[in-house]
C-alpha cells in the first residue's frame, strides 16, 4: 500500500513537471507583456507553440549527423530524470534517492553537453559561438553552485534534496545568515543556468548576444519542441530546487495524502511569486556583455563563500 502511494506521488510530481512547466513559462511571458504594456497571447500560448512544433515537418541541416537528431531526446530525458528527484509537493519519492543534488547538477550538465555538441554539428558559425559561450558561462556558474550547495548542506548534514528540505521544515525556524547568503548566490546562479536576463535573453535572435538561442538555431519541428519543453522544465526545476533548499514549508510529509491539496496550492503560489520576481528583474535590467558575466558569477561565488564562513563563525 505504501509503495503504491509513493509510486502515485512520483507519477503525480512527474506530471506536474511535464505539464506544469509550459504554464510557468506562459505566466512569465504574460506578466512581461503586462509590465511592458503589450497585449498578451494568453497563459496557454506555450502549449499551443509546442503542439504546433510537434506537428511540423523537420528540416535538417545538410551536415547534421546522428548527434544532432539524438541530442533533443537526451536533453529532454536528462531534464525529466532530474525532475523525478526534486520534491515538489511531497517527500514521498521512490526515485528521490537516485541522485543527490550534486548528481542532479551533473544531470543538467549531461543535457548541456549534448546540446553544445549538437550546436557544433551543423558546421555553422553561430552554433559554435553558442556552444562556446554556453560552456564558458556554465564553467563559471558551477563552482558557485557547489559552494552554495555546500553551505546549505552544512546545516542539514546532507546533500539529498528531500533530506535537506525535510531538516529545514522539521526544525524550528531560525534565521540563519549562512542560508541568506547561499540564497542570494543561488538566485544569481539560477539566472545564469536557466539563461535569463541579465546573463542571456531567451527572446533574442540578435546574433551577437545569443547564447542558448544560438545553439538551437538549426532545430525545427519535434526536435525544437523537445528542446523548448526541456528548457521550460529547467526553469520550473531550478525554481523548485530553490524552493526545496530555502523555502520548503508546505511540502507534504511521508504518507500524508490530506496535505496534498494545500501543498499543491502552496507550490503554485510560490512559483507564481518566482515568476513575478523574474519579470521584475527582466524588465528592470538590460542584458550584460558576455565578459561582464565572470564578474556576475564571481560575486555569486563570493556570496556563497561568505555564507560558508558565516556558518563556521556565527553558527
Amino acid at each position: 500500500m505504501e509503495n503504491v502511494y509513493s509510486a502515485l506521488m512520483q507519477a503525480l510530481q512527474l506530471t506536474i513537471v511535464v505539464a506544469g512547466a509550459p504554464l510557468l513559462t506562459g505566466w512569465v511571458r504574460t506578466l512581461k507583456c503586462w509590465m511592458q504594456g503589450r497585449r498578451t497571447a494568453g497563459l496557454l500560448q506555450p502549449y499551443r507553440d509546442l503542439a504546433r512544433l510537434f506537428s511540423k515537418d523537420i528540416v535538417l541541416a545538410e551536415n547534421a549527423s546522428w548527434i544532432f537528431r539524438f541530442a533533443p531526446y537526451v536533453v529532454f530525458g536528462a531534464t525529466l530524470m532530474a525532475g523525478a528527484v526534486i520534491p515538489l509537493i511531497s517527500f514521498d519519492l521512490p526515485l528521490g534517492a537516485t541522485a543527490d543534488i550534486i548528481a542532479l547538477v551533473a544531470l543538467f550538465a549531461t543535457a548541456r553537453f549534448f546540446l553544445a555538441l549538437a550546436a557544433m554539428d551543423t558546421g555553422t558559425a553561430f552554433g559554435g559561438m553558442g556552444s562556446s559561450r554556453e560552456m564558458t558561462v556554465a564553467s563559471l556558474a558551477e563552482p558557485a553552485m557547489l559552494m552554495s550547495i555546500f553551505t546549505v548542506s552544512l546545516a542539514s548534514q546532507s546533500t539529498s534534496l528531500s533530506q535537506m528540505a525535510h531538516v529545514i521544515t522539521s526544525t524550528p525556524l531560525v534565521l540563519r545568515p549562512s542560508l541568506a547568503f547561499a540564497l542570494l548566490a543561488f538566485i544569481l546562479i539560477a539566472v545564469a543556468e536557466t539563461g535569463r536576463v541579465p546573463v542571456d535573453n531567451p527572446a533574442t535572435h540578435l546574433e551577437l548576444t545569443m547564447i542558448h538561442e544560438a545553439m538551437i538555431l538549426e532545430y525545427s519541428g519535434r526536435h525544437l519542441a523537445l528542446i523548448e519543453w526541456a528548457g521550460m522544465m529547467k526553469l520550473l526545476l531550478f525554481s523548485s530546487i530553490g524552493i526545496a533548499c530555502f523555502f520548503p514549508w508546505g511540502i507534504s510529509g511521508h504518507g500524508d495524502p490530506l496535505m496534498l491539496p494545500p501543498a499543491f496550492v502552496i507550490l503554485a503560489a510560490k512559483l507564481a511569486l518566482i515568476g513575478i520576481f523574474i519579470v521584475l528583474v527582466e524588465t528592470g535590467l538590460a542584458k550584460m556583455r558576455l565578459f561582464r558575466v565572470p564578474e556576475f558569477l564571481g560575486s555569486a561565488f563570493l556570496l556563497a563563500t561568505l555564507g560558508m564562513l558565516s556558518f563556521f563563525i556565527l553558527e
Binding site: F54, S55, L60, E62, V74, F76, T124, L217, E218
Partner: peptide, 26 residues
C-alpha cells in the same frame, strides 16, 4: 530513468507522422 524518458519522448514526438528533409544550414 533517462532511457525511459527518452523512449517516452520518442513515442510522443513520433505520434504524428511528419516528414524529415535535408536542406542547407539556415
Amino acid at each position: 530513468g533517462i532511457c525511459a524518458a527518452i523512449a517516452a519522448a520518442y513515442i510522443v514526438a513520433h505520434a504524428r507522422k511528419t516528414a524529415v528533409r535535408r536542406a542547407p544550414a539556415w
